[in-house]
């Protein structure tokens, strides 16, 4: 869908935001791995904190709430990482730190957008969007480095999963709208017939 379409369709706009996050994440993760010396460290046995569970059977509302909770938590975690890395990164990596900061902004914007979609679907106030509780920064240097990696990796996984979720929601919404229109049309026909009889 083009930019105009995305402007009118909140799901398409969300998908666009997710795609941008995904595109920005790829070089960011590469750079992060290089800076932290993780090139040869195998994290594949460290499970991602994204639980698929009964994902395929989830209802639209559940799906959206799962996305909202995930991005809210990722935003909190990323905020913590940005703060920690500010002290850890060499000043010459200021561009990289700026990119992390910009990613945080994008995740925040996406979370707000998902909240708006929630409001459209009538799911108001079922989540707490307070991101000020960042969680205490602490732990060893290694833990901080790994924390940053895991947050970026989880974000990467969610940026793919959420596109599918939003598409599914978009399809369901379209089907609902079509059915509603059909019902209206049927009703109109009946009204016209009734008028004709009279």
């Amino acid at each position: 869908m083009d930019a105009n379409g995305a402007h009118h369709d909140p799901f398409a706009l969300g998908i666009q935001q997710l795609r941008k996050i995904r595109v920005d994440l790829i070089p960011l993760m590469e750079k992060y791995v290089q800076i932290q010396g993780f090139d040869d460290l195998d994290f594949s046995r460290e499970s991602a904190s994204v639980e698929i569970g009964n994902w395929t059977e989830m209802a639209a509302e559940e799906r959206l709430i799962a996305n909202l909770s995930a991005f809210l938590e990722l935003e909190r975690q990323l905020k913590r990482v940005v703060e920690e890395q500010k002290d850890l990164l060499h000043p010459r990596e200021h561009v990289f730190h700026g990119d992390l900061h910009s990613l945080l902004g994008q995740v925040g914007a996406l979370r707000e957008h998902l909240e708006q979609i929630g409001s459209i679907l009538g799911l108001c106030d079922q989540w707490s969007s307070d991101i000020t509780e960042v969680g205490a920064t602490g732990g060893s240097m290694f833990e901080k480095k790994v924390r940053g990696y895991k947050v970026l990796r989880d974000l990467s996984v969610w940026s793919v999963r959420s596109v599918r979720d939003l598409r599914k929601l978009q399809r369901e919404r379209e089907r609902y709208m079509r059915e509603s229109m059909k019902e209206v049309e049927t009703l109109m026909e009946r009204v016209e017939t009734e008028i004709g009889r009279e």
Partner: peptide, 16 residues
């Protein structure tokens, strides 16, 4: 790297 060398202790299966 200036972020420090990573000395890591792994389990039998390679888990960190």
């Amino acid at each position: 790297q200036q972020s420090g060398d990573n000395l890591v202790c792994h389990g039998k299966d390679g888990r960190i």
